[in-house]
Computed example of a mutant assay.
Amino acid sequence: MFVVLLTYEKGLDVIDALLAEHIRFLEAQYAAGVFLLSGRREPRTGGVILARCENREALLAILARDPFWREGAARYEVVEFVPSMAGAGLDALLHF
């Protein structure tokens, strides 16, 4: 499992111009079962994605299709981890 931390590298005017395309990218990854949770950071300096993917290289190839990445509007930190505990109702996340 992976946590992807996005940090905006360009102004919110650029981010907002790319937002509709970024949302379509996110929706496609949810439909493919890759992304499990996502949202904005507060304050609005980037975002966070919880993802499951077979390996880091495959995830990086997917992230490269994000318009934020493509346009250099955000940098990405990818943290891989092995979940070992989960809160009530989230047990299914332990089996990825």
Rank of each mutant, 00 (worst) to 15 (best):
L18V: 09
A86Y: 06
L5H: 03
L5N: 09
M1T: 07
P83F: 08
R44W: 07
V14P: 01
E71F: 05
R24P: 00
A92E: 10
L90P: 00
F68K: 02
L37A: 15
R52I: 10
V82N: 03
Y8M: 10
A32Q: 14
E21I: 14
D13P: 15
K10Q: 13
E80K: 09
L50I: 15
V48L: 15
Q29R: 15
H95R: 14
M85W: 15
A31D: 14
M85H: 12
R56Q: 08
E9F: 00
G39S: 07
A73E: 04
V78L: 09
F96D: 14
I49Q: 07
A92G: 14
R75L: 13
S38E: 10
I15C: 03
A92S: 13
Y76V: 15
M85G: 04
D13M: 06
Y8K: 10
A64K: 12
R65D: 13
L50S: 07
L18H: 09
V82H: 04
S38V: 13
I49E: 06
T7K: 12
T7W: 00
R44M: 08
H22A: 05
P43R: 11
E80Y: 04
D66A: 04
V48W: 08
K10W: 02
A74F: 02
A74E: 08
A92R: 14
L36A: 00
G39F: 14
R41I: 08
D66F: 01
T7D: 09
G46V: 12
T45M: 06
Y8F: 15
I62M: 06
F2C: 01
H22C: 02
K10I: 00
T7M: 07
G72I: 00
L90T: 08
P43Y: 11
